[in-house]
Nucleic acid binder design. Sequence first.
DNA 1: GTAACATAGTTACAAATGAAACGAATTTGG
DNA 2: CCAAATTCGTTTCATTTGTAACTATGTTAC
Lengths: 161, 161
Amino acid sequence: MSASDQSGDHAADLLRLDEFLPYRLSVASNIVSETIAATYRSHFGLTIPEWRLVAVVAEGAGLTQRDIVTRTRMDKVTVSRSARALVDRGLLLRRARSEDRRSHELVLTDAGEDLHQRIGAQARAIERAIFGRFDPEELAGFDSMLRRVNDAALALLEGEG
Amino acid sequence: MSASDQSGDHAADLLRLDEFLPYRLSVASNIVSETIAATYRSHFGLTIPEWRLVAVVAEGAGLTQRDIVTRTRMDKVTVSRSARALVDRGLLLRRARSEDRRSHELVLTDAGEDLHQRIGAQARAIERAIFGRFDPEELAGFDSMLRRVNDAALALLEGEG
DNA sequence: GTAACATAGTTACAAATGAAACGAATTTGG
DNA sequence: CCAAATTCGTTTCATTTGTAACTATGTTAC
């Protein structure tokens, strides 16, 4: 990796894109996302933000949009639009909250639950197709790295502005 | 990882987003990209595609836009627009190719080379800030996983359409 | 040679995205 | 209480992004 390449020669001054981890992370992530997005769209007519909303609400019924923004770091406008689209399709319900009438509790309809089940199966199938070939130790390491990279970048981003 | 969670109980049917590797990959990648994009924009007035173009051309002067599309998997429209923006700013030159007048060889101007040096230093600083705390073995493993994930997803995407 | 096809790149248009302004409800400070 | 400030969510608008159509050049097959 180039960050650990601290030899003082001239070549070290050139940034090789292919060895630049953020670049590689981005490319890998985009290809995986494209693969998944293609499936969600063709099989279920859902965008990635919509599907994420379904997944999050399935895990924690009764969350507000604000809760979801906080959890997923999606933009609040994206969440708003996704929620509306899902409500329009009869997959999501908004229940009034007596304690705060600005926001609503989001819950899946039966159709929404059903869709979540089917997408979940599909999502795991893709995950298996991509990650299934690696051994558990490698995966655990990868997973742990992602979490720590996430935290480190977040600290940078929020720390420095 | 959830794909390896094959216990037969009910909870196994629920997809926990937080344990879904493609999701985690995407979130981590987005945060890292945001961090870097903020720096490029504020320090150099460059978008990420523009900066990538600079980096790729710096590595292989004389490439055509098509070459860059192939190498980086950027969209050809994105490459076209980035190239134009860089030419307008005096960072990039287009040299005619006698063998094919549809395309041009791209090379950095002196100003472009200079910018590349400065950005490179900055980019490595960010990489170090995010990835510098991990030990070389972990990084090597992470790097290798990214490459293999990339290849596996690509095979899926291109194989199945 | 030339008609059909393919390729590099741009342009025009449409969809997705996010920042800023806004309306409505709630909280805070006096 | 009530005015100011804050928060949740939506809407509006500008920017970004990519698909599709197009121009220009190049290649292939007859």
